[in-house]
Amino acid sequence: MKSKDLQNIALSKCQSGDTSTKNFRDLNGGIGLRTIKRWCQMIRQTDSITLSSPPGCPRSARTKENIQKDYVPIKKVVEPSLSDDQKMKRKKFANWIRTNFRIEETMRILFSDEKFFDIDGVYNSQNDRVWAVDRADADADKNGGIKQKRKFPQKVMVWLGACSKGVTPLVILDEGTVDHVLYIEKVLPVALKYGNQVFCSDWVFQQDGAKPHSHHLTQQWCRDNFPSFIDEDHWLPNSPDLNPLDYSIWDELANSINWSKVQSKTTLIQQIKSSFKNIRESVVFESCASFTNRLYRLCQIDGNYLR
């Protein structure tokens, strides 16, 4: 089948609402998935497929001899460096949870975390692209081809709790340095009120080992007020892969923010508050429900970091 015929089929199917993947499958490999995605992008932007040159070299037969020569770019993943001692502690923690908590009890854990958001937003150099003939195209830079970053961008710290029932109210910590006094005053009462509302008196509070959390007055407040909590001797440092907020929910919030509207700390806070409402309940539930499975996987991979 000629390339033009493939383009016409792809155009018709894309305009009918078919996804790039369905297009690829229906064409039975007649054209590459990456090319189909590029065509669909063109169709969404211009309602047509306009190519300045043929769509690539002829496909070569995939044999045992040449299949090993096919390379694809793989983005590097940043993850914490774990020592052997930390890996051992992670396995010990996983076994402690699995021994002392039934699955239904882990669904009553209120996870919590803080995160900095700055006004430069979320920028992924691999995925953030603009369409242009080349970099010299006059419109390329005007249409977002340049991402400027400030040397010292304004930022704000956000606290959030999450459990199988949903997320707590958002706490914006904009008073400068967050110490144990501010944490006890502004954050812990929010967690306590929410946990009691959704679980009555049968639930567990989780926090990481940050200094405001591990302070002896914070630990004492938790002992005096929460029905149960994972104390500083049990929760592991350097383990964001075990907190649903870190491995899922923060991304859900960040991707909901309209970063084009963020020009100052004030507009950043406004966007965080409005986008917070768009966090999907299904994402929160599935993230928390996967906690025990992640612990099982952690034991299988000898305490290494979960991707």
Rank of each mutant, 00 (worst) to 15 (best):
L173R: 11
N8F: 12
S282E: 15
I43C: 03
A10N: 10
Q220Y: 12
H234P: 05
K261L: 14
I257P: 06
S81R: 12
N8M: 13
Q206T: 10
A132I: 04
E79P: 08
K149N: 01
A132T: 05
E286Q: 15
G145P: 01
P169E: 07
G121N: 06
D113F: 05
F93Y: 12
D26H: 14
V187E: 05
L11Q: 05
N143L: 02
N100Q: 04
D118S: 09
E104F: 01
Q271I: 04
G166L: 10
Y296I: 13
T168N: 01
L242Q: 07
K115Q: 14
A10W: 04
D224W: 12
N225Q: 15
Q206W: 09
Q7K: 12
I109T: 07
D70Y: 09
L182A: 09
S164C: 08
Q154G: 14
N225V: 15
L192I: 08
V133P: 04
I103W: 07
L173K: 13
R34S: 03
H215A: 14
D139V: 01
P55Y: 06
C14M: 07
W250Y: 09
R294K: 13
V156L: 10
D118R: 04
Q148H: 06
S239M: 08
G145M: 03
V72H: 11
M42G: 02
P240D: 07
P58C: 00
W131K: 04
Q219M: 14
L236V: 13
Y194L: 00
F229I: 10
K273S: 14
N258P: 05
M107F: 08
N238C: 14
N100D: 04
H216A: 11
S239Q: 14
K142H: 07
Q270N: 14
F24T: 01
L27S: 11
D70I: 13
V167C: 15
V171G: 03
H180I: 00
A94D: 02
E232Q: 10
D118N: 14
S256A: 04
K211V: 14
F117W: 03
